[in-house]
Write a protein that binds this DNA or RNA. Structure first.
Length: 390
DNA sequence: TAGGCCATCTGGTCCT
DNA sequence: AGGACCAGATGGCCTA
């Protein structure tokens, strides 16, 4: 199967429009990937996509509003007479530097020699008048306010980046460095998917995402991706990370029972369709469960094959009700292994203690309502998923 | 209490 | 000259 321009655009559009590095990188990456597929007809689509910065206008304006808020905040700080922690000593130093700003008023009576030592080069020290001290204070305060605004903007961009990487938790925010690492891994993983043109391998994909991440973040990502870490590792240990398709696992509500999934309509054979109509389902099952295959109806499968999650956020699905966020939680249960192997596999990635950073892998599956997979995916995701479906 | 993370201040450097 | 950017220093907060 060939990859269309919409596939490339779908992947690329999944990247935040805020983080400058991502903005700069992804369009270029998309063009490069398009060429990898040796289909020049895709280039117009990709180039059109490269103008996506326009789509982020609302986000930009929001950022500007934030910036204005920050500026106002800074002004308030100044109005309060708070020097923002600027010590009097620091101000004296600034004032000393600032002396050179003022023409005239040079220190009189300085000879070419200061005692035995030659006179210092550079501008002469100037007397600090009260007016000059005040000017230096104002200048320093303005610089501080600008710096605060700059850092707030940077943090705002990071927040936006957090929302589009495969794992997002309101309460357990990724640190800055972990966010950047995960974003890098995410981009890399997407690129690899495009490059290979193959259905991504579950375990390898998660490993790619978690590469270089701290233990707690690794656990968090595993939880966000709804992977029971032990079983995920069991699978990894069992067959070297190969994903065997729908018969290799079953889906269970975990750890919370979903009322909707318990309902008859969700249990019925048409649940997949009903969930699709709610915006769930097709991505994951088409991607990883092979809904078109006979195995789809394997007796081993009992639950609805349409979790609102997927191996990565890129293929996750729109959830259009707050309840959905609260209700659905799954993990993957692979075929059982002897506990010793499970332990060995568990230790492989999560450490021998199984607990580190206070987040045990088994407990790393956060309540779903606390986590967000990606919302509001463009319709082209269906197309993209169809690609993996083949 | 130590360590991690963060916000802020600060001064230096570079650019326009 | 002024602003943007950067990195070091510092102190606060949180968690194990």
């Amino acid at each position: 199967m060939s990859i269309t321009g919409s596939h490339v655009m779908a992947l690329a559009s999944d990247v935040p429009t805020i983080w400058p590095g991502i903005i700069a990188e992804l369009p270029r990456r998309a063009v490069m990937l398009t060429r990898l597929f040796s289909d020049p007809s895709l280039l117009p689509d990709v180039q059109k996509y490269a103008g996506w910065a326009d789509d982020s206008e609302s986000e930009d304006s929001k950022t500007k509003d934030d910036e204005q808020d920050h500026c106002r905040l800074g002004e308030e700080d100044l109005e309060d007479g708070d020097l923002g922690g600027v010590s009097s000593r620091a101000h004296s130093e600034i004032a000393a530097e600032d002396e050179e700003d003022d023409d005239g008023e040079e220190e009189d009576g300085e000879d070419d020699m200061e005692g035995d030592r030659p006179k210092k080069r550079g501008p002469k020290k100037r007397k600090m008048t009260p007016a000059r001290v005040e000017r230096s204070k104002v200048r320093r305060q303005k610089a501080n306010a600008r710096e605060r605004t700059r850092m707030h903007d940077l943090n705002s961009a990071l927040d936006n980046l957090r929302k589009v990487v495969p794992c997002y938790s309101k309460t357990q925010k990724l640190s800055k460095i972990e966010t950047l690492r995960l974003a890098k891994n995410y981009i890399w993983a997407l690129s690899e998917i495009l490059r290979s043109g193959k259905r991504p391998d579950l375990v390898a994909y998660v490993q790619t995402l978690c590469k270089g991440l701290s233990q707690p973040t690794t656990n968090l990502v595993a939880g966000c991706l709804q992977l029971n870490s032990r079983n995920f590792l069991t699978e990894q240990c069992q067959d070297g990370g190969r994903f065997h398709g729908p018969n290799s696992f079953s889906m269970h509500p975990y750890p919370y029972q979903c009322p909707r999934l318990s309902s008859p309509q969700c249990q019925s054979g048409s649940n997949s369709h009903s969930l699709r109509t709610h915006g769930y389902g097709s991505a994951y099952d088409s991607l990883y469960t092979g809904s078109a295959s006979p195995e789809y109806n394997s007796p081993e499968y009992e639950g609805p094959l349409s979790p609102p999650v997927c191996i990565n956020g890129n293929f996750s699905l729109k959830q259009d009700s707050p309840d959905a966020e609260k209700s659905y939680h799954y993990s993957m249960h692979y075929s059982a292994l002897p506990s010793s192997r499970q332990t060995a596999a568990h230790n492989l990635v999560f450490g021998s203690s199984g607990v580190r950073g206070g987040v045990h892998s088994e407990n790393s599956v956060l309540p779903y309502h606390d986590m967000h997979l990606h919302h509001d995916r463009p319709p082209m995701y269906e197309e993209l998923n169809a690609f993996f479906h083949n």
